[in-house]
Simulated assay, not measured.
Amino acid sequence: MAYDFPSDKLDKFMLRLPEGMRAQIKAAAEQNDRSMNSEIVARLKLSFETDEVFEGVSRDDPLSMMRAGTKVMEATLKSFEKGVRLLEIEREKDEEGGGS
């Protein structure tokens, strides 16, 4: 019997990586507790979001660049805070369940 997985319907893209980058992706994925695919997607998403923030910002205007950079840092901080909260919830569940 053939199984139908949701990921089978997602777009696939073959990619050539420079030497050593696969190891970097693997290490980052392990550190962030996600798959290599999820690590690549998260980093691409952040790159596009950063581009959107800096769109139309003049590189000759330091104040505008700083404001745009601040927006990126705020978004990153919110994402980090969300991750911390999820870890706190996991820890609370473990403690309630008598885990270590």
Rank of each mutant, 00 (worst) to 15 (best):
D4K: 13
P18R: 15
E90S: 08
A42F: 06
R34T: 10
G97R: 09
M1V: 04
S58H: 01
V72F: 05
K12L: 06
E52R: 12
T50R: 15
V84M: 12
D60W: 11
K26V: 08
R59N: 05
M66I: 15
D8W: 03
M73S: 03
D61G: 02
S35K: 08
G56E: 05
D94G: 14
A29F: 06
K71Y: 03
E74Q: 07
R67G: 00
L17P: 08
Y3K: 01
L15R: 13
G99A: 15
L46W: 13
L15D: 05
L10R: 03
G99Y: 12
K45N: 09
T76E: 06
L46T: 08
E30L: 14
L46R: 14
D51P: 00
D94F: 10
V72N: 08
K12Q: 06
L44S: 01
K82F: 03
D11Q: 06
R43T: 04
M14Y: 07
E88A: 15
I25M: 05
E90H: 11
K45Q: 09
I40R: 01
V72Q: 04
A28F: 04
A23G: 06
S100A: 13
D11T: 06
D51N: 09
S58C: 02
M66P: 03
E39W: 11
R22C: 11
R34D: 07
A2V: 07
K78R: 15
R34A: 05
S47A: 13
S7Y: 09
R85I: 14
V72H: 02
V57G: 07
R34S: 04
G97K: 03
E19C: 00
S100N: 13
A68D: 03
A23D: 10
I25C: 09
N37F: 00
K78T: 14
K26Y: 02
N37H: 01
L10K: 03
A23V: 04
L86V: 09
R34H: 07
E81I: 09
F13P: 00
E19Y: 07
K12R: 14
M21D: 13
E19I: 06
R16W: 12
V57P: 01
E92S: 09
S7A: 11
R59M: 07
K9L: 12
D51C: 04
T50P: 03
S47R: 08
R67A: 06
R67M: 11
F13L: 15
D8V: 02
K78G: 07
S7T: 11
R59P: 00
K82H: 03
Q31D: 15
A27N: 10
E52F: 03
K82P: 00
Y3N: 01
D4L: 10
E52G: 05
M36W: 01
V84G: 02
S79A: 08
M66R: 10
N32I: 04
M65K: 13
G98Y: 02
D11P: 01
A27W: 05
V53N: 04
S38F: 11
D4H: 12
R85T: 14
K71Q: 15
V84Y: 04
V72P: 02
D51W: 09
Q31L: 14
D4P: 00
M65P: 04
S79L: 07
R59Q: 10
F54P: 04
R59D: 07
L86K: 12
V84C: 03
I40C: 09
E90V: 08
F5P: 07
S100Y: 13
Y3V: 01
